[in-house]
Write a protein that binds this DNA or RNA. Sequence first.
DNA 1: CTGTTAGCGCCTTCAT
DNA 2: ATGAAGGCGCTAACAG
Lengths: 337, 337
Amino acid sequence: MATMVEVARIAGVSISTVSHVLNGTRHVGEETRIRVRQAIEQTGYRQDALARAMRRSRSDSIGLVVSDAGEPAFAEMAHGVEHAAAQRGLTLLLANSAEDADREERAVQTLLERRVDGLILARGAGSGPSVVKMLESLSAPVVLLDRVFAELAFDQVGADNRESARRLVAAMTASGVPRFVVIAGDTRVPTLRERLDGFFDGISDARLRADDQVVLTGVQTPELARRFRAEVASGGIPGIIACSTPLAVVALTELAALGMRTPADVAFATFDGFNFPDLFEPRLTTVRQPGFEMGVAAVELLADRLDRPGGGPRTVRLQQRIESRESTLSWNADPGT
Amino acid sequence: MATMVEVARIAGVSISTVSHVLNGTRHVGEETRIRVRQAIEQTGYRQDALARAMRRSRSDSIGLVVSDAGEPAFAEMAHGVEHAAAQRGLTLLLANSAEDADREERAVQTLLERRVDGLILARGAGSGPSVVKMLESLSAPVVLLDRVFAELAFDQVGADNRESARRLVAAMTASGVPRFVVIAGDTRVPTLRERLDGFFDGISDARLRADDQVVLTGVQTPELARRFRAEVASGGIPGIIACSTPLAVVALTELAALGMRTPADVAFATFDGFNFPDLFEPRLTTVRQPGFEMGVAAVELLADRLDRPGGGPRTVRLQQRIESRESTLSWNADPGT
DNA sequence: CTGTTAGCGCCTTCAT
DNA sequence: ATGAAGGCGCTAACAG
């Protein structure tokens, strides 16, 4: 690869002039500029981003650590991050923590060693205080994505989980569902916690009894599936809410095993949801997370802070859309009619 | 951030000793090593990967350019690439070309400027000879992913599209489907070309008339959808094969609009497919692409070439699995019985 | 077993 | 309007 030295030699100028032509950092005479451009063309010269980054102590790159690259929800966010980053001339370094605290910490370290200008982190379920301490000691700006921790002083991007859950419950109770099984998952995960809180908001709004509701929490294990199955099998459950896609998979699998269907036997709604939900049955009512937009928003927060540092931490909540489909719309409070 | 100079000063050694402790590149006395480690601990020193890369002219990073980060198929491959890369201590730089030739070229340039040690590229539909020329002039190794171009001298990873299509057709003809509408898409894309070729292999194997089959090619437009609809509406079509997920979406949408169902009215199979195909109806027979494994294989090829350069280009074909489901299994050649 | 030193390719201050 | 030169942080000869 040609370097600036070679370009300079061919153009008959100093390397500093080449640099200034390249970056437009000071005026260069018309004629000189043309000679330099020709020399660049001729040699096929390409700037070395590493050397440049080293000298400027700014790499024009950002890091993204996702907790599960396999989940479509995170793939969407990554897509949004890539898009917004590229638009700003930032290169994206991607790492996956696979929901493992150690790997998460190592991923962050690796990206920092590569001197990313900023970091976007979707913390995993296992992520503990040690990562937080590390992030806090950083000079590079950090944005937390997807899982919002109210007590932490970082910029954060999440969905309006609590509000959406509340609205979902409002819609379902309005159509006559008086009682729910909520498969809520690991409520140490803020996203799931918020959705559950919103559920109870909605129950309260509808003047229903909170202790009448069945809430299944805990990490996703066969045990959780069994508990769900037992609750549903015991009968008298008109409504089911799954608080994430993996949890919906559990619920749907168990329902099928019980020979139950939605909306015929039970009203059903899920968060995040599946691709192409209108092509397949059952058509599930879904609280849709704007993954792409969340990724974009995270980059915006980051870029903003890179441009002008200072100012307190900001949290952005993106609105979720409730896509109502047959699984709740066609559910009938009184099948007898 | 602390540098090696500071660590060296505190440990009372030269920076070269620090470097050797860090990299294990030469023997360092027990005691000295311990002092250095302490100094590292104490200062919170982190290696600067950029400076290191510059000096060694090796960045321990690879670039991945995908043609559509939004497609789950590519998200899977990216996941595999990330996984295999991380395992080898390689950082992943991700870029998206969004099926645009210009952006693809720019993405490659950007990654090269960042001095990635190698490049994995899933070429987009619009990708032309100019990218190829550029790749050929590179010193860094390149692996082409997903879309295999027989005439190009790169390492490549793809699926065994032709063979799988042939087997799929064998299975469907065996259960009595004598005639197909194939929604084949843009056959300039090698993957789709191969699937179509395999289709005709299968037709020939089954001693069916090739000119009896209806093949719809062309980029995905409303026009393609209309043609599909017209063909199916005209009747007498017992089998449908969609050669990619987006094409399956078109086909399913049009079928629904016609009030037709699978397997009741028509046998249906698709390539690549949808998530959780057993949870929803219709349950589609699917030729599943091993996206994750393809990503892993691409990194293996790349790493191999980094370790020991030389040798001719290799093409790896990963086997696809045919997941047979009701959409073909329950189709009945003679609904009268 | 350890230290000294010359760059890797670039930007930027200072000088002209 | 342009050049000269230092140094970003690190590795790898070379030298002891």
